Amino acid sequence: MIPLSPALERIEASQTSAMTDRAAALRGEGRDIVSLSVGEPDFDTPAHVIAAAKQALDEGKTRYTPVAGTADLREAVVRHFARDLAIETSRPQVIVTAGGKQAIFEALLATIAPGDEVIVPAPWWVSYPQIVRFAGGEVVPLPTTPQDRYLPDPDRLKRLITPRTRWLLLNSPCNPTGAVYPPALLERIAEILRRHRKVMVMSDDIYWPLVYGAQGHVSLGAIAPDLADRLLTVSGVSKSHAMTGFRIGFAAGPQELVSAMTRLQSHNSGNASSVSQAAAVAALTGPQDFLGEWRATFRRRRDRVVSAINAIPSLSTPEPDGAFYCFVDAKPLMGRFDDDNALALHLLEAGVAVVPASAFGGADGFRISFAASETALDTALARIESALR
């Protein structure tokens, strides 16, 4: 047996990826599986982005770039943060990474010492606690409930902060719940952070354009620019521009932190793909009008899924205000199943791939991605209803 690093022993494989892989394997065996487990838009990458990637290849842009990203892309990111997130930053405060996940990984590995605590609202994105544990930190859950639309309670947050608290991780719009933090909530969180100067905060805004209410997306950095010296904001083009395979994310924050992340990246992956960076420049600087059409499509799908789920006995879900997920409560069914993993496997046998709530720090339910065609959604929802009848 090969001895593994103690750091690796502290983490588990991604259950979302595992369920997606399992669904693909069953399809390979000839099974008809509708996958609602994957977290990526089903739209085609915009044509002008594809054209930019082809042009980059034709022009020989296939060499190393600066570790933190090309000057063109970092400048485009600066403009993106100002235009779309109302956050003022500068090129030395920006790093380009191979997907938003790498930016989160580098920020936490660069700053967490053994025993540091990281507060994470639960349910959470599957990788947050794994990255914290890999870095030697301790995850402190901040539980949220469907009754509160999965929004964190600031009073509970205050009680969780200790002298060992190093980071607070925020994700709005949220994967897996679809929760969108309103400005009043962000103001209360900012006020708490002002009283705890040593606590850093990460705002994962990767789903920023996918908000369905009248308010739209508001970032913590726009609400509280005075926290800029300890706030890292993460964004990217994977979800917003259907570019998951291009693997381009970026983050903006204190220059000292970004420099540390860049140092780590120089020994990790080096620069993100040069061709993908050229495509990302086109994504950020080119036409953005398609985003409204995509958002309207996702809103229709959301309404369709929420209505169908809430019509199935023993299932319920609040209406998500953002992203493209529904977090389904199936607690009344748990007398029939050992746990939500067993429930997810039961649905997989019925031809629908979902991810159990326990993968996200939740319980007794599952996450549905409605980033699928309406035909696929209707088929999956009918199968779920039939499997649980």
Rank of each mutant, 00 (worst) to 15 (best):
A272F: 01
A260L: 14
Q215M: 14
M1D: 03
T233V: 15
P254R: 06
Q277V: 04
S386Q: 15
L291E: 11
R367F: 05
V126W: 05
C326K: 00
A82T: 07
L377C: 05
E40T: 15
R10G: 13
I192K: 04
L315R: 07
R166D: 00
A135T: 14
A283M: 08
T97H: 11
A380Q: 10
S37N: 14
G335L: 12
Y325N: 11
E187Y: 09
L264I: 15
D148W: 05
L151G: 07
I248M: 03
L109T: 14
E88R: 07
N268F: 15
M1Q: 11
L381R: 02
R247P: 06
K198I: 08
A13Y: 00
P3G: 00
M202R: 11
D44I: 13
R383Y: 06
M19F: 04
L347D: 14
T16F: 09
G99F: 03
H241W: 14
L257E: 02
D204H: 13
Q15M: 07
A353S: 15
L333N: 09
E319M: 10
L170C: 06
L142Y: 06
D378M: 02
Q130M: 15
A280T: 06
A283L: 11
L8G: 10
S369K: 08
G253S: 10
A371C: 13
L186P: 07
T20N: 13
A344Y: 00
V38P: 08
R299W: 10
M1R: 12
L284D: 08
R159Y: 09
V352E: 06
E9A: 11
L142Q: 07
R302D: 10
G178N: 04
G39P: 04
A190H: 00
L186V: 08
E12H: 12
A68N: 12
R156C: 08
L185F: 02
I368H: 01
E12Q: 14
L185G: 06
A376V: 03
T317P: 12
P129N: 00
P183M: 01
L36M: 10
G30N: 05
D32N: 15
Q55V: 03
G249L: 01
M19L: 10
V328S: 03
Q55M: 05
A371D: 11
I312V: 14
R230K: 15
G362L: 02
L168T: 02
D84C: 10
A122H: 14
G221W: 01
L109D: 01
A279E: 07
M200W: 13
V237N: 02
P6C: 10
R91S: 13
L36W: 01
G136N: 09
S127M: 14
L8C: 13
A260R: 04
H346T: 11
T379P: 05
I368Q: 03
I119Y: 04
V34W: 06
S90D: 15
V218R: 07
A122Q: 14
V258F: 03
T70W: 09
C326H: 00
G361I: 02
A296P: 11
S276Q: 07
M202N: 13
M19W: 02
W294R: 04
G351H: 03
A251L: 04
E117K: 15
G69V: 08
